[in-house]
């Protein structure tokens, strides 16, 4: 069985990154925006693991970095959900358009 080439995996991860970015710009629901950010961070995890496995199989740096990213992403999600709950208590909505007290 032939191995999947690196470029395919990089294509998937880059596509995921830009799908996440697209979601950030188009979605108005705060939870969905949070999910888009998670998508961006996880696409980076795929990148690290692919580079580590295909190009530098001798050491495990890339794998370690993904563990840090997963931890930090969990902390970020916890903080973000706390902020969103607070916003929901004040606005009774999790639509970003509702949160417009600060004008440019």
């Amino acid at each position: 069985m032939s191995e999947i080439p690196l470029s395919h995996i990089l294509f998937v991860s880059t596509a995921l990154f830009f799908i996440g970015m697209y979601g950030m710009f188009t979605r108005r629901n705060m939870i969905t925006m949070l999910m888009s950010i998670e998508l961006m961070l996880n696409s980076v995890n795929i990148n690290f693991i692919a580079f580590n496995k295909y190009l530098f199989p001798g050491n495990l740096d890339g794998l370690f970095f993904t563990i840090f990213i997963i931890t930090i992403a969990a902390a970020e999600a916890a903080v973000a959900i706390a902020i969103i709950i607070n916003l929901y208590r004040n606005h009774k909505s999790i639509d970003v358009e509702e949160a417009d007290a600060l004008k440019h």
């Binding site: 970015m21 961006m40 961070l41 980076v44 970020e76 916003l87 949160a99 600060l102």
Partner: peptide
């Protein structure tokens, strides 16, 4: 609250770029 959410959104977005 809104400032915190905006900061989070932009900061996490920037972290995504930095990580990539």
């Amino acid at each position: 609250n809104e400032a915190g959410f905006k900061y989070f959104l932009m900061g996490a977005f920037a972290s995504g770029f930095l990580l990539f």
